[in-house]
Design a protein around this nucleic acid. Structure first.
Lengths: 189, 189
DNA sequence: CGAGGGCGTTCGTCAAACCGAACGATAAGA
DNA sequence: TCTTATCGTTCGGTTTGACGAACGCCCTCG
């Protein structure tokens, strides 16, 4: 499997900046915030200074005391426009099939929806395990032909066709033509 | 430590479950994931066992190696076969532009995500009003070329290209070639 | 002026997160 | 069967993050 992972990126510096930003937004001192969060103010001081590598519990407490969701402290503010050119982006390849999925937009805990571009080649089909209960997969074929669906009732699809099915049972994808690809939206419960 | 009840959920057990779930989704062993993430497998083993309070850097490395956003590891996760053939389905056509959108899957209040297939023809571009605050649009071009994006910074896209941008400001879509179509995922909040 | 109380930083101690090595279990192959 | 590989877990040793106390600083009030 590959590792083309240019994740958003910087964890520690982001946290330092986010802590200071959110704390000043609330309008409270380091000492006061430390009191409310139940952490030593020395710890908080060093965190805002960019030093340190806080534990989850420490950072969680600070998030609660600040009244902001946890993710705001660890993820940089989202750029309004993101572009991922064809072929770019983090790729997840299955070892047992000619199958490459590119993650375009990962769902946050609140949106619960991942968007992939999935490229398949004829031959070995991709047999997918059952995912977590309640997940649903949506597929729109962009080019080529492919057979997809839960085990036992595969559907044959052409360009523009759409299918959705439960993802919490075993299912498979199989390309019928070379160069087939599709947009896959994976929806979680 | 005291915990406010407003905040979503406790982090410790969630992380253990999320790590295991995501790791099995990728289909990789503890040892392998530990290698990729650059952490001791003993650390990962104990984390999945529910013991421990990982540092940000440790958990971040695991998130990168798993190809999932950080927040999915720390916050709880918040049919059955439908087929819509190309050209079928409820169509929404704009009056002022050569633009047809087909609703494939409407988002429930819980999923907050609509999936469309959008067909455009060159000529009059589609100028979209600003939607409700917090909405995000995701576009994957399936065929043709189109220019899309918020007013002022349009992006030119070809097959396979992906772009996402805030939907709560005016934006537009414009086909540059005949027969252009794209998958549009509209995300609400 | 000097006492008091707030602030943010620095320092020494201690618990624990992280690591590497060793362990038993399981599976594939000679 | 014996070997070899990988798996996940457990066990000391080391590193380091969290803590509390002490420090210097700037106010304000007596």
């Amino acid at each position: 499997m590959e590792r083309t992972l240019h994740e958003p990126a910087p964890p520690l510096a982001t946290i330092a900046a986010a802590l200071r930003r959110e704390r000043e937004r609330v309008g409270v001192s380091i000492a006061e915030l430390a009191r409310r969060a139940g952490v030593a103010k020395s710890t908080l001081s060093q965190l805002e200074a960019g030093a340190g590598n806080p534990s989850i519990e420490t950072l969680w407490s600070l998030g609660v005391a600040l009244g902001v969701p946890f993710s705001r402290l660890v993820e940089p503010p989202a750029p309004s426009v993101r572009v991922i050119r064809a072929g770019e982006g983090p790729r997840l390849s299955a070892d047992q099939a000619d199958f490459v999925a590119t993650l375009l937009a990962a769902g946050s805990p609140h949106t619960r929806r991942d968007i992939y571009v999935m490229e398949l080649e004829p031959g070995k089909p991709r047999e997918a395990e059952a995912h977590i209960p309640g997940s649903v997969e949506h597929v729109v074929v962009a080019a080529g032909r492919l057979k997809a669906g839960p085990a036992g009732q595969p559907i044959e699809l052409g360009p523009g066709d759409y299918v959705s099915f439960a993802g919490d049972v075993p299912h498979h994808y199989e390309a019928l033509e070379p160069g087939s690809w599709a947009v896959l939206v994976m929806e979680h419960r």
